[in-house]
Design a protein around this nucleic acid. Structure first.
Lengths: 102, 102
DNA sequence: ATCGTTTATCGTCGATTAACGATTAATTAA
DNA sequence: TTAATTAATCGTTAATCGACGATAAACGAT
């Protein structure tokens, strides 16, 4: 209505709102946040290692990883009997940019 | 363990993780995100106006505002029979800073 | 082919969330 | 004082979440 020529901070698209909310939802649990922070620190690791770090059952950790993956924050690649997880840098960056527009 | 002298991005405190997760939870609903965006645009407004903007019942909007207030993102001041809401800039800033550390 | 390791999925349970209408409380206007 | 306006709270309902143990699936090693 008035910021027709504002370059840095235009209004968020409708789809962006939904996606940002979905990512927030994935990050809204302390255990999942810790998983993300752990993956940031060590870059990549398998599910089993996360299980040793968190006070949660293996199935619960697997569930949290599934949620993070569904939100796009995390990528998983099967390597033999194990699965290696890492952050998706692009999605992380997108999230931060959106957060900065709030 | 190795970043003993890294100035910009030290590890998050335990309490910070909890708080960040709690704020994410508050932002994890599209309606609440829209409320935050609306408050950013118009700076401050009463509950009734938000009701006209969102396709939700008055009681539902009031609940969402309560959740945003509990998370610290929003402040409300009673002005006669109505309540005026606005964002808490400091909390918003804290959230963005934490997000940038992910 | 079988065993051990690792991870994902299933089923269950209690707790929490989201939404609504109805009601109550607070305040202004008539 | 009464009526109208505005917002918060209550009570209910269906749906979702979070956690777990048990089980199944995938794979490497023997």
């Amino acid at each position: 209505m008035d910021n027709c020529c504002a370059p840095p901070s235009t209004e968020l698209e409708t789809g962006d709102v939904e996606r940002f909310a979905a990512i927030c939802k994935a990050l809204a649990h302390p255990a999942r946040l810790r998983i993300v922070l752990h993956l940031k620190r060590i870059d990549r690791c398998i599910c089993g290692e996360i299980v040793t770090v968190l006070p949660l059952a293996q199935s619960t950790v697997s569930q949290h990883l599934k949620i993070l993956k569904a939100a796009g924050l995390v990528k998983g690649s099967v390597e033999g009997p194990r699965t290696c997880y890492c952050l998706d840098g692009e999605v992380m960056t997108w999230f931060k940019q959106m957060a900065n527009r709030l």
